[in-house]
Amino acid sequence: MKILVSVSLSVMVLLQDAAAVTHSLQYIYTASSGMTDFPEFVNLGMLDGVQMDYYDSVIRKVIPKQDWMAKNEGPEYWERQTQASFGAEQSFKVNIGTAKERFNQTGGVHIAQMMYGCEWDDETNEVKGYYQGGYDGEDFIVFNMETETWIAPIPEAVITKHKWDNNKALIAHWKNYLTQECPEWLKKYVNYGRSSLMRKDVPSVSLLQKTPSSPVSCHATGFYPDRAMMFWRKDGEEIHEGVERGEILPNHDGSFQMNVDLDISSVSPEDWRRYDCVFQLSGVEDDIITKLDKAAIKTNWGKPEVKSGDGGFPTAAVIGGVLGFLLLAACVAGLIIWKKTQQQ
Rank of each mutant, 00 (worst) to 15 (best):
D271S: 10
M12A: 10
Q344P: 13
G97Q: 11
V216H: 01
G312D: 01
C118L: 03
I171L: 09
S255Y: 03
Q81M: 14
A316K: 12
M52T: 15
P153Y: 02
E40M: 11
N95R: 10
P225V: 07
V7F: 08
L47Y: 02
Q280T: 15
M12R: 14
V260Y: 02
W120M: 00
T299R: 02
G45F: 04
F231H: 10
S214G: 00
D286I: 06
H23K: 06
Y192R: 05
K100R: 15
K291I: 13
S57F: 09
K61E: 13
I159Y: 10
V202N: 12
Q180K: 12
E40A: 10
W78G: 02
A157V: 02
G311E: 06
E184G: 02
K163P: 01
V42W: 04
E241G: 08
G49D: 05
I248D: 03
P203N: 04
M145F: 07
Q83S: 10
P203C: 04
H162Q: 12
A317I: 10
A329E: 09
P225L: 07
P39C: 04
S308G: 07
F140G: 05
P183H: 06
N72Q: 06
L323F: 11
G34F: 00
I141E: 05
L323E: 12
M198G: 08
K2Y: 13
T149F: 03
P75R: 00
Y177E: 10
R227T: 14
I28H: 12
H173L: 11
V243H: 01
G193T: 02
M230V: 13
K307L: 14
Y224A: 15
R233L: 07
K339V: 14
S32E: 11
D37G: 08
K340E: 12
G246L: 07
D261Y: 01
I239W: 00
G246K: 12
E241T: 15
A295N: 11
P203L: 08
K187Q: 14
W232T: 02
K61D: 14
I63F: 05
L44K: 13
G108P: 04
V267M: 01
S206G: 05
A99N: 07
G222F: 09
E241P: 00
F143I: 06
Y77Q: 07
N300P: 00
V332P: 02
G134V: 06
F143V: 09
A112S: 13
F86E: 12
D37P: 01
